[in-house]
């Protein structure tokens, strides 16, 4: 069975490689054979075609089909217009999920970026910097499910008066506050889940910021300190403006990750105690209620909420490219 899989993998690798070579050859020859005027117009189309094909098959078509499905009933049989949307938005559970998604989309980027930036700035150009960054980067390599399991232990709750096995509760009990049911209490459970995601993403943010900081010339800091600028002023008026494009990229990437949040929540609470977000709700509508219409509607809502971030990101990227020229 495993051998079979490996041979299939081998075949796939060879086949993809071979067809890529074949396609580029044929395309190049075709362009060469055409008269110059026509070739100029055909060339980009030929090169874009494979990517366009793949994107339409695996992205555009499913997205479109999802939007269409969202206007049909549970098994895709009858057209219901926008009823799935109105049904969903009148359910308290959806409103809670929307609130939580909003909390994620604000909390994760903000905390991830701020902590990542602090780490990057503090470890920039110091001897032990790479080690700190490497240590913080490790969590991104841990699978989300494993992360969630680890953090469940971290948040574990035992009744007051008994030995606390969860690290965090042992800590707060020693500080004189009773044990806190981190994943159950309605005030702390969503932040507790977001904190888990922050743990996985901070290292990534720090590494991206560190790379950006490398791009800031040391001369600027020397000049600034000669003029008597304090470290804070140097950060505020030199570092931040110069790495601002990176900050925006990090914030938007984290926002998209926050909207996609699923695994951590699925493992740690599965949406119990009002911790559902749009993605977990979509999963439940699809695989538990088997309602293609409603899950399609939730997917569409999710897509719509990501769209402005992506649009902003693309626009920002373009303007920064223009700036470079």
């Amino acid at each position: 069975m495993i051998l079979e899989r490996f041979s299939m993998l081998g075949i796939a690798v060879v086949a993809v490689g071979a067809s890529t070579v074949l396609y580029t050859n044929v395309a190049a020859r075709t362009v060469r054979a055409l008269p110059t005027g026509l070739a100029r117009r055909v060339r980009p189309a030929l090169w874009i075609a494979p990517a366009a094909l793949v994107v339409s098959v695996v992205l555009i078509y499913p997205a479109g089909a999802t939007v269409v499905l969202s206007m049909f009933d549970a098994d895709g049989g009858g057209f219901v217009g926008l009823r799935n949307y109105t049904d969903l938005l009148s359910k308290p559970s959806t409103l809670v999920a929307l609130r939580n998604s909003l909390m994620w989309v604000i909390g994760l980027p903000l905390l991830g970026a701020v902590l990542g930036l602090i780490v990057a700035v503090l470890t920039d150009r110091v001897r032990y910097g790479p080690w700190v960054k490497a240590a913080l980067f490790v969590p991104i390599a841990v699978s989300a499910v494993a992360t969630a399991v680890i953090w469940r232990f971290f948040y574990e709750y035992k009744p007051a008066g008994t030995a606390q096995t969860g690290t965090l509760n042992e800590l707060v009990t020693r500080l004189g506050v009773g044990p806190v049911p981190w994943l159950i209490d309605g005030w702390v459970n969503n932040p507790a889940l977001i904190a888990t995601a922050v743990w996985t993403q901070t290292g990534l943010c720090a590494v991206i910021f560190a790379a950006a900081l490398r791009g800031v010339s040391v001369d600027l800091y020397e000049a600034a300190s000669l003029d008597g600028a304090s470290p804070w002023h140097q950060f505020r008026h030199i570092t931040l403006p110069l790495i601002w494009p990176t900050v925006v990229v990090v914030l938007t990437t984290m926002a998209v990750i926050a909207l996609k949040a699923f695994d951590v929540i699925y493992v740690m609470t599965n949406g119990s105690y009002d911790t559902d977000v749009l993605a977990t709700l979509m999963y439940k509508e699809l695989f538990s209620a088997r309602d293609d219409g409603r899950s399609g509607a939730l997917a569409t809502l999710l897509m719509l909420s990501v769209a402005p971030i992506v649009w902003f990101n693309v626009r920002h990227y373009r303007s920064s490219l223009r700036g470079m020229r």
Partner: peptide, 11 residues
């Protein structure tokens, strides 16, 4: 029940 509501739910 042993413990409190939160330990019943969380264990």
């Amino acid at each position: 029940a042993f413990g409190d509501v939160n330990s019943v739910l969380g264990t």
